[in-house]
Nucleic acid binder design. Structure first.
Lengths: 121, 121
DNA sequence: ATGATCTTTATAGCTGACTCTAAGGTACGG
DNA sequence: CCGTACCTTAGAGTCAGCTATAAAGATCAT
C-alpha cells in the first residue's frame, strides 16, 4: 500500500506543507516517487511520522529530531546512540510532567482563592 | 522594599528585555518609577511575575495572559471571570499531563526496543 | 571630569516551526 | 481540449515570543 501526500496528510494530521518541510530538513527521507515525480508514502513512513509527532508533542526540538533521523539513516549500528538520545529526552519529559503537576497545584490554590473572593463580594 | 529592573531580572529569571516587553504588552502595569524615570519594582510585582511565569510554563499563550491581566486591573468584581479562565486552563494542563504520560510510555517501549537491538548486534 | 555601568525609549532583528505563493507539470471528466 | 483538481519546486511570509540595537540620560569610582 502506498499513499499520496494528501492521503498522508489526512492520516497523520500534518499538512502537506509540513510533510514537504519535514522532508526538506531531513526528518523524512527515501520517500518513493511515482512516474510523475509525485510522492508515494509507504506504511513504514506512517509509523515513522507518527513517532516524529510523538517526539514533537513531547517538546523535542526539531534539531534533536534531525539528529535522531540522521542516526536512523545510518542503520542498526546507531541503536545505542538513538537509545541514549531517547533516554535523555525521556528524562526531560518525566521532569516536565512533574513540573506541570506542581504548577497545576498552585493554579488550583489560586482557583480556590478566587472562589473565596467571589463569595465575599 | 523596591528593586531595579536588573535586580528583578535576577530574582525572577526574566531578562530585563522581557520585563519591559511584558510591561509594553500589558502583562505588567503600574510599575513605579523613581525620580530618573527608572523602574522600581515592589514585592507584589514579584508575586505577580512569578504567577505569570507559572502560567507561561504551563503553556498559556500570551494572549490569554493579557486577558487575565486585564481582568485583574479591573478589580475584584472580575474574580469570577478570572477563576473561569484559570479553570479552563487547569483543564488544559491536566490534559497535557495525561498526554505526556502516554507519550512517555511509548517512548519507553521504544527505548526497550533499542536495547534489544543493541544486544542482538 | 571621564569612563564604565546602569537606565530609558522606539524600533528592528532573530529563532523555531511552520505556512503560503508563484509558476508550472499531470490527470481526468464532459 | 477545457476546466479543475491534483501534484512539483524554490523561495517568501507569518506568528509567537522574545532579544538586540541605537541614541541618549543618570550614577559612581578614580
Amino acid at each position: 500500500m502506498d499513499y499520496s501526500i494528501a492521503e498522508i496528510s489526512k492520516i497523520t494530521g500534518l499538512s502537506a506543507y509540513t510533510l514537504r518541510y519535514y522532508e526538506n530538513i531531513g526528518l523524512l527521507s527515501d520517500i518513493e516517487r511515482d512516474e510523475n515525480g509525485y510522492r508515494r508514502y509507504a506504511d513504514k513512513d506512517i509509523l515513522w511520522i507518527d513517532f516524529l509527532i510523538r517526539l514533537r508533542n513531547t517538546g523535542m526540538p526539531i534539531g534533536q529530531m534531525q539528529k535522531f533521523a540522521q542516526l536512523r539513516r545510518q542503520g542498526n549500528s546507531t541503536a545505542g546512540a538513538r537509545r541514549a538520545l531517547l533516554e535523555t529526552h525521556q528524562d526531560h519529559v518525566l521532569n516536565e510532567i512533574k513540573e506541570l503537576e506542581q504548577h497545576a497545584a498552585v493554579i488550583r490554590e489560586k482557583i480556590v482563592y478566587y472562589k473565596q473572593l467571589e463569595e465575599e463580594s
